[in-house]
Design a protein around this nucleic acid. Structure first.
Lengths: 111, 111
DNA sequence: AAAGTACTTGCCGAATCGGCAAGTACTTTC
DNA sequence: GAAAGTACTTGCCGATTCGGCAAGTACTTT
């Protein structure tokens, strides 16, 4: 007795964050600039959303240097990976129909 | 040169509306109360979201009577069905990785 | 006449999002 | 060594959105 929509993760649902998490899920670890270019977002927005994802415990932000220049890397935590998987599963459940929620097919089925 | 996230339909993306549209996609035509119970939402919220979907041209709202009692039915328009399909496709593209966005696999690939 | 059914609408406060611009901490260039 | 550039970060701001609650509408049933 619970529609899969309730299992959607609000943090991951936002289009931008969904894209970021998906990009990270595929990449294992990615540079800030790479994610920014992939998702097509401004520095500012990525910085904010990444911080939000970190706050949620879904992303780990690592800072370091490449040569003498500062770099930031983003990677999913295991919690983030799990949340993403769960979110996708919920999305699929919803998309594949609310079938099974009621008795079955056929329109105009009152209660 | 465009991340699939840009193809997400804002009207459909909202969790509640996504659930409503999905329910309708599976049902062909459904009673207001059926959708409300399936999606687990209040009358007020469904009424508002359904109106929004109608404004977007995605849902058709039909009113009539069953015996002497008023009833409202919701159904997807063809535009709604198409938008839903497109939205799901974009969702999948994103979820299946931003692969193909850049040159290929491998982490730490700068620009 | 009062109550109930089946929604609809207005009001409201809370939360979110992105752009823009300034800030930080270094490094490189002139 | 002062100015400029790199790589983000943060604050401010206006716009939009969403849901709950409660009152309203139009009928019908008790």
């Amino acid at each position: 007795m619970s529609h899969p929509r309730h299992r959607l993760d609000e943090v991951i649902h936002a289009p931008v964050r969904f894209a970021i998490v998906a990009a990270l899920a595929a990449a294992e670890k990615a540079e800030f600039a790479f994610v920014r270019d992939t998702v097509e977002i401004t520095d500012s927005a990525l910085s904010k959303q990444a911080a939000a994802l970190e706050r949620a415990g879904y992303v780990k932000i690592t800072k370091g240097y490449v040569g003498k220049r500062p770099r930031t890397w983003l990677s999913l935590t295991s919690a983030g990976r799990a949340a993403f998987a769960a979110h996708c599963a919920a999305l699929r459940e919803i998309a594949d129909g609310a079938l099974g929620a009621d008795s079955g097919p056929g329109p105009s089925r009152g209660r």
